[in-house]
Each structure stands twice: as C-alpha cells, then as structure tokens.
C-alpha cells in the first residue's frame, strides 16, 4: 500500500517500474532536435484517416502498440488502461484504444494527463493487484485547433505567448519489475487559479499549478531540489517557465539548473515558429515517454520529478468570461528502487 506523506503526497511501498514506454510524433515533431527520441515519426499527420480526430486516435493506438511490443506483453495481459486527451468526451482515447480490449478508465486532466495517468498507475499498481497498467495520452494540432481555436485555414496571427499543440502521443506500461525507472512517489495536485483569462497565454495560467505541486512535494517529503538531477514540467513553455522560476523564488526555491520544460524541449523556438513553445497532452507525454524515460534507462538521469501541467478550461467557460483553472500532478521517477520515506 502507498505510504501517505502529508496530505497529497504518497510514497510507493514497493515502487512499480515503467516496463516500457513509447513516443509517436507528427511531421513538425520530427523536424526538431528531439526527433531522435521518438519511436516513430509520421509525416502524414492524417494517418490516412478522413478526420483529424480519427488521426489522433491512431497516434494513441500506435503509442500503445509500441509500448506493449517493447515490453513483449500482449494487450490481453494488461489489467488496466488509463487514457485521456483534449477532445470533448475524450474521443481520441475511446476510439484509439477500443480495439485493444483492455479494461479502461478515461481521464481528463488536459495537458497534465500523462502524469495524472502515471500517478494513478503508481497508486493502483503499488500493491501489485493491478499489474501491469498502461497509461497513454495524445494531442493533435489540427483536432485541438478546430475545437479550441479557429479552423485551420483561418488567417490569424498568434501572439508571442501562444503555444503550439504537439501532434504526438506517449504511452507507458507500469508494472512490477526489477528494472528501472521506478515510480517512487506521487503528489496529487490541487486546482490553482490565479485569475489568468488569456487562452493565448496558457503557460502563465499553468505556472502556479506546477509551482504549488512542486512546493507541496518538497514540503511533504522534506527533500530539497539538489537531491534531484532533473525536474521536468509539462508544457509551461518559455513564458510559463520564467513565471514558474519567479513563483518558486518567492518561496526561496531555485530549480533553474535542473529544470527542463517539455514545451520548450519539443520544438526549436528559433526555427519552428511556435512562439512560446509546445503544448497539448502529447507534448509532455511524448517528451516524458520518449526523451525522459530514455535518459533514465541510459543512466544519464537518476532522480527526476516529472510534473505535467494542465489547463482545465473549456471553450464554454472561456466565452463566459471565466478564468483558467489549472492543475499539475507530480511523479518521482528514480533508477533506485528504495522506497521514499519522510525526510528523504
């Protein structure tokens, strides 16, 4: 059973492993320095489908298939699938995974879905009853644009704070193993809303959620940033990352030397015209299940806090003038299986 540390942090008693993980990306994702960490790049972002929604489903299906193949586990052996995405009623997930016939819980955490799924997989998988668990999420630039913003052919200018929804998917299979990386602790985030209304500045809206969850984790575990060699936030982008540092600095916490943001990693801001960086469930999912997991597997990183961030507004709430509620969930990934206890 997970051991509670404070109110919202739980340490795993017998930390489950990430058995295998896979990342799939679209054309733009294949044109940046991160391309090598994707298992597959699909230059045809329609995936041969007639609609963008179906295309996104296929990305998610492909990420699941690749993760299962790497782990040499058949879909029938998987006990639970945790999946979510950005589209209304999470249709990318439902249509993407239906053929795998794995018992399914749908999640909605917007762009925080990857760590939401990993956190749930850790908590549910700790006692070994549900093993293995597959966690997957995706986003597609085209399906997100047409749901949240404008039609693709609409001529508009993006402000400098806007972020580009990644066309990508990431999947991770969580189960008992003696192979790192291990999922050692999770912090479940609370909703943070500091009154940001601008849907073209999601990084600013989400930065307080990431900062709050990280500070909660440090307080609950009694650990310090220097005990980790990597802190990966979801998709704060360039603007959100700067605000994240400022918010942490107010609490005398400095993570600048070990922090990386999936939104800043996934695209090259100078050459790819993405303004403040990448976003979407698939951004943190593909960076987490691709780049980050490989770094842990290769032993280049050993103690990593991974916090994807999500903006939980809808087009309705935006048009009704509501501010943007945001959330961030944290998972602690480590190459060392020793459980975490209070005080380190």
């Amino acid at each position: 059973m997970p051991i509670p540390l404070g109110r919202s942090t739980f340490a795993m008693n017998r930390p489950p492993s990430v058995l295998a993980s896979a990342a799939v990306g679209g054309k733009k994702e294949g044109e940046d320095p991160m391309a090598q960490w994707f298992d597959e790049i699909h230059n045809d972002t329609t995936f041969g489908e007639k609609t963008w929604e179906k295309a996104e489903s296929r990305f998610q299906q492909r990420a699941c298939q690749l993760a299962l193949k790497k782990a040499k586990i058949a879909p029938e052996q998987v006990k639970l699938l945790l999946a979510g995405d950005l589209l209304n009623q999470c249709i990318s997930s439902s249509y993407g995974v239906k053929e795998l016939m794995i018992p399914f819980f749908g999640l909605y955490g917007a762009c925080s879905t990857m760590t939401e799924a990993l956190a749930l997989a850790s908590l549910l998988g700790d006692n070994g009853v549900i093993d293995p668990i597959l966690a997957v999420t995706s986003s597609h630039f085209c399906s997100a644009e047409r749901q949240f913003r404008y039609p693709l052919e609409y001529g508009g200018q993006r402000p400098p704070t806007a972020q580009w929804t990644a066309t990508a998917s990431g999947a991770a299979l969580v189960g008992k193993s003696s192979k790192p990386p291990y999922l050692k602790a999770v912090t479940i985030g609370t909703i943070q809303d500091l009154g940001v209304h601008d849907i073209n500045n999601m990084g600013a809206a989400m930065a307080p959620a990431a900062a709050a969850t990280l500070l909660t984790y440090f307080a609950d575990t009694g650990t310090q940033p220097h005990q980790y060699d990597g802190i990966f936030t979801g998709d704060l982008g360039q603007v959100g990352s700067k605000l994240f540092y400022q918010l942490l600095a107010q609490q005398q916490v400095n993570v600048t030397s070990i922090h990386q943001d999936c939104g800043c990693l996934i695209f090259d801001a100078k050459t790819q015209d993405v303004h403040a960086g990448g976003s979407g469930c698939g951004c943190a999912a593909s960076m987490g299940c691709g780049y980050l997991m490989r770094q842990l597997e290769m032993g280049k990183l050993h103690h990593v806090l991974f916090l994807a961030t999500g903006a939980l507004m809808s087009t309705v709430s935006c048009q009704q003038g509501c501010s943007i509620p945001c959330i961030s969930h944290l998972v602690y990934l480590s190459t060392d299986p020793t459980p975490v206890f209070q005080g380190g």
Binding site: T161, V196, V239, L243, Q246, L247
Partner: peptide, 13 residues
C-alpha cells in the same frame, strides 16, 4: 491575481 498579473506583464515578450 493582481500581483500575479503584474508579474505576467513584466514577463511576457
């Protein structure tokens, strides 16, 4: 929210 908005205004390009 007002303090945070001031922080955002200083940070955005």
């Amino acid at each position: 929210p007002q303090e945070y908005d001031a922080m955002i205004q200083k940070t955005v390009p």
